[in-house]
Amino acid sequence: MTTADAVRARLGPGRLLPLGRADGGAWLTERAAEAVLARAAAGIDGVRPGLIRLALADPATALPATVPAPPSALPYGPLRIEADFAADGATLARQSLAALGDTVRGALLTAARDTLDLEVAEVGLRLTDVLDDDSAEPARPAEPDGGPRAVPPPGSPGDAADPVAVAVAEAAGVAGLTGVLGEPVHRAPDGVRVECAVAAGHRPLAVVRAVRTAARRALGAERPVSVLVTAVESAAPGTP
């Protein structure tokens, strides 16, 4: 296990990053964001992504959520990405470090905006190593260890069917229910929290809206519903 992998394992899902507006009640795990951003950086020739962290760009201006927030959830505001990366010597011989940094920064911003629906104000980069051409391995994004645990389909034998879980599992763009913080559907006196993974090709905010609508219909009452996205699936290679 590399140092970066050890850090990922220790951090678990990481911070819960704000999705959308403060009145939306939606978050994305830092672990899920890291996986998508690492894939984006690994797609650049000669680049090997390292540790990626996200935090509020300006905590002083962040807004609190208007619905009950899960533990470790950040308030709402633009984010800053801090990303380490290594590059091979041949790549740096063809272009300047500044130019390569601009390419990496652009890839991270595009993935954050177009795949994750995150608002990012700043990207900080750090070159951690220059790889020998003979020893450089093809860059590939490491899938974080200990991702969202599988949850049996709602109503499987031996389990009482949860109407909210059943409804959410059938919502557009939901790849499945997850249980990073506990049960996939967490009921509390002040509201309901749903955990799910987003299917490839779907935008997280659109899936959040579908999940919230499905949950409210199943509840049959107007209760606050917050949504935690714990994974965003990638399209298979060659898929448009």
Rank of each mutant, 00 (worst) to 15 (best):
T2A: 00
L11C: 00
R31A: 04
D129I: 13
E195V: 08
P154M: 10
T2K: 01
L131A: 12
A136Q: 11
A165Q: 03
D159K: 08
A214H: 01
T178R: 04
L19I: 07
R53I: 03
H186I: 12
L97A: 15
P138I: 11
D5Q: 15
V120D: 05
A60I: 01
T230I: 07
A214T: 03
R31C: 05
R187Q: 09
E122M: 06
T213D: 13
V120A: 09
G173D: 10
L108D: 00
G201W: 00
A41L: 13
L56F: 05
G146S: 12
A40I: 10
S226H: 05
L205H: 09
A142K: 09
V36Y: 05
G20W: 01
E183C: 11
G155W: 05
T103L: 04
P237Y: 05
T230L: 03
A218W: 02
R212L: 09
P163D: 12
V232W: 03
A112H: 09
A60L: 05
G14F: 01
P70G: 03
A165M: 07
L11P: 00
E82F: 10
G20S: 07
G176F: 03
T115V: 11
A26Q: 05
T178L: 09
E82N: 12
I44Y: 00
L16A: 07
G238N: 15
V211M: 06
P224T: 04
A38C: 15
G50Q: 08
R209Y: 06
R203F: 10
L181I: 09
D133F: 01
P237H: 04
S72R: 08
